[in-house]
């Protein structure tokens, strides 16, 4: 039982802000679930506080944040600030949506592990989530 539990990655997929574009996030959530992960979808209109709280309560390996409204440069610093405050900055954060190319390096600098858009195949996204989650558990000595 323990091994099954440990190998099942837990992913919180979240929609911050007022943005209602949830087609992509739902497709991603389903693809991750089909790949055998535990997926917790927050629903829309989450504040950074709510997202971080959900991630902690759900013991998440990864937070996937989908944002198409252009507010990413406001939202991500808040999420990272809160994760640090709560001592949870080991959780992997992945961004998806419409992110301007010039913002991608800035997001990486903040701590975002990967940035995705709708033009990449789902297998690539699933593979990356698996890799980052595996590496996180290895870093923390969880098997």
């Amino acid at each position: 039982m323990m091994t099954t539990r440990a190998q099942t990655f837990r992913i919180v997929v979240a929609k911050p802000g007022l943005d209602g574009h949830d087609r992509g996030v739902k497709i991603v959530a389903r693809a991750l679930r089909d790949a055998g992960m535990e997926v917790i979808y927050t629903g829309l209109h989450q504040t950074p506080e709510e997202i971080v709280e959900t991630a902690l309560q759900e013991d998440a390996d990864v937070i996937g944040v989908s944002i198409l409204s252009g507010a990413h440069m406001t939202v991500f610093p808040k999420i990272f600030g809160l994760l640090r405050e709560r001592g949870a900055d080991d959780i992997v954060v992945i961004a998806g949506g419409v992110i301007q190319v010039e913002d991608i390096p800035k997001l990486h600098e903040m701590g975002v592990s990967a940035v995705y858009d709708a033009e990449q195949p789902l297998q690539v996204l699933v593979g990356a989530v698996t890799r980052h989650a595996t590496e996180r558990r290895a870093r923390l000595g969880l098997v």
């Binding site: 409204s69 507010a71 440069m73």
Partner: peptide, 10 residues
């Protein structure tokens, strides 16, 4: 506060 970062954006 909910509007921060979204005013005039879209």
């Amino acid at each position: 506060p909910r509007s921060e970062g979204e005013v005039g954006r879209e």
